[in-house]
Every structure is written in C-alpha cells, then in structure tokens.
Design a protein around this nucleic acid. Structure first.
Lengths: 176, 176
DNA sequence: CCAAAGATGTTGATGCGTCAACATTCGGTA
DNA sequence: TACCGAATGTTGACGCATCAACATCTTTGG
C-alpha cells in the first residue's frame, strides 16, 4: 500500500454536497411517490410492465430490464402480489419460468403516479440544470460507469454472481 | 393539473445514466467497505466518533452530525453495540441523554477501513473528473439542494417531523 | 436414455431505513 | 410545588436489499 491520497478541500466539498444531494433526491422522490402509495421499487417494476404487451413480462426478462437479482425481484413481487398490483402466471414453454402480469389495480396505480413522478424529477433536478450541464452529467455518468466496470473485474471481490452487469436501462420515465 | 412535461431524449438519457451511476457507485463502495466488515452506515457514525475527543459523542450530537433521525440512529447503534464497535454511557448532566463511546475495536475498524474507502471514492469517481467538472458538480448539488428545500416547505407533505434539515455535513473523508 | 451442469425462481436470515407509539426527563410557568 | 409541553431515546412493525441455501426444470454430453 502506498500512501493514501486524501481528498483536498474542493474534492471533499464536492463529494459531500454530491452525497447529500443523492440522499435528498432519493428521499424526496420516495416521499412524492409514497403519496400515491407506491415505492421506487414498485415503480421500477410497474413501468416496464405497463409498457409490455398484455401487461405481461416473464420474470427473467423483468429482472434484466430492472437490473435486479433474482432474490430481490422475487421478494418484491411477493409484496406487490399481496397488494394486488401484479399476479403470477405459469410460463408457457418453460416450466421453470414465471410470467408476471400487471393487474388493473397495478395499471391504475402506475398511470396515476407517473406524471407526478416525472414532474418531481423535472422540478427538483432537471429544471435547475443548463443544457450543457445535462450533457456534462451524461458524460460523467458514462465515465464513472466505465471505471466501475473496470474495477469490478480488476481486483474483483464479488464479481457478479447473479446480477448481469451488461446493460442497464435504469429508470424509465414515460409509461405508455 | 396542467399537462405533464415528459422528459425529452437528452433528459431521459441523462437521468437514466445518472441514476445508474448512483446505484453502481453505492454498491461499489458498500462492497469495498464490506471487505473490512463495515457498512456505509457504520462508517458514517465511526468517522465523527473517531474524530471526537475521547471517542465520545452524545447521541443527540451524533444525530446532528450524521443528519439522521432518532430511530435510525438508535437502531444502528444497537447493531454496532452488539458487534462491539461502540458502547453506551450515561450522559452527565442530562439523564435523558446517552453518550456514545468508540471502543478500541471500533477505532481499529475505522482506521483500517478509511484509507481504502477514500481510495475507492477517488478511483471510481474523483479521478475521472476534471477540475471544472468538480466545480460544476458542487454547483449543481447546491442548486438541487436549494430546490428540494424549497419544495419541502412548499406543497409540503412530511415536512421534517424529526430530522433537522438545516445543516448536512454529509460524509467525512479523513478520520484523524 | 441418463447423469451432470446450468438456468430459473423461492425462501429464510439478517442488515438497513422509516413510521408510529412509548417512557423518561427537562424546563418553564402558574 | 405541580403541571404541561418539549426534548431525548428506545422499541416494534414493516418494507427494502443482499446472501446463502434450496427446489425444480432444461440442456448438454456421454
């Protein structure tokens, strides 16, 4: 180990402000969604489901779209099924699979919540950015993601046992 | 309700990339810290404790420094106490209070983890940014935080019942 | 065909985070 | 002094997230 390169004052200020912004943004969006009785986790699954033909997606595919691992998805679907937002069906052609179906309650919920959610994203974040800053942020995010991917396979520790790190659709904004 | 202002392509691309970066950055840092058997939550409390004289801070103050609410702090301290990282003592002069004490195990843990954590922050994030981008991010974070603060007290819903939203030291980086 | 290996989901345990309810103590005021 | 409201912490319940273990089914290769 060489000597630790601590953060200088500017770096520290940025890192703290950035971390705080992240936390506050999450809380605020969670809070606004909760007003519609949905969590961010619900939202992330309901959006792709609402865009799928018939409101049906196989769990495997949903897992890929959300970038989650099996367990997280299964637990979340169990909770959502209990609330009547989704249902499980047998998967034709593969007895291992499960098809997730958006219920009418689920569709109502996402359609009620989506506009407000997007408005929140816009009001709290996008509207305070200049077009240049939007491009800069996109560029930064890409560089950081590339670096993290590098890092995962370098001195790797828990290199992807389950979750595929290939693609990441992130969070959709416009449910049909 | 006026018409929803959906996100255009650039905005959506930025928002998704940004959200993904946030998640991946969190996971990566959590994972690296876990290599030292610490969580981010542990770290956030251990840093101020390690910097305090005698390794002692009253719970109220720790709560303020971390920006947490009572309950979260209490639960986290219970878990950390069970692992021997901290201890609870009576608060002299105020029988309601509790003084949190960093144990020697706690000190060893934070001192072992801090350099690696800072290195991770630097390698995965800071090192891929230009000085201009660091300033830009600081500026963006401040604007967003101001907007969120505005929003909280505007059409507010759960405007701060417990957690003081005044100051936020965020995450410290250099435990003495 | 049959056994091994892989894919797909589920479950239980545990840690993290929030909310509501509670007990205790302090401070100010009648 | 006695009371009442505020401050301080703790607890239980529940949702979210990850890990390890498991059950089942499919595919592959002999």
């Amino acid at each position: 180990m060489t000597e630790t390169r601590w953060l200088d004052e500017r770096e520290q200020r940025m890192w703290r402000a950035f971390a705080t912004m992240r936390r506050r943004l999450d809380s605020a969006m969670e809070r606004h969604l909760n007003g519609e009785n949905l969590s961010m986790a619900d939202y992330q699954l309901l959006v792709p489901l609402s865009e799928a033909p018939g409101g049906r997606i196989r769990a495997r595919e949903l897992r890929r779209l959300a970038g989650w691992d099996r367990s997280r998805l299964s637990h979340q679907l169990r909770r959502m099924e209990q609330r009547g937002l989704v249902g499980r069906e047998d998967c034709p052609g593969d007895a291992r699979g499960t098809v997730i179906r958006l219920t009418s309650e689920g569709r109502s919920a996402i359609e009620a919540a989506a506009p407000g959610h997007v408005e929140t994203v816009r009001r709290l974040f996008i509207d305070v950015l200049t077009p240049e800053e939007i491009e800069t942020l996109t560029s930064i995010a890409r560089r950081v993601l590339a670096r993290i991917a590098q890092d995962t396979f370098g001195p790797g520790e828990t290199a992807g046992t389950d979750a595929p790190v290939d693609q990441d659709p992130g969070e959709a904004a416009c449910p049909g």
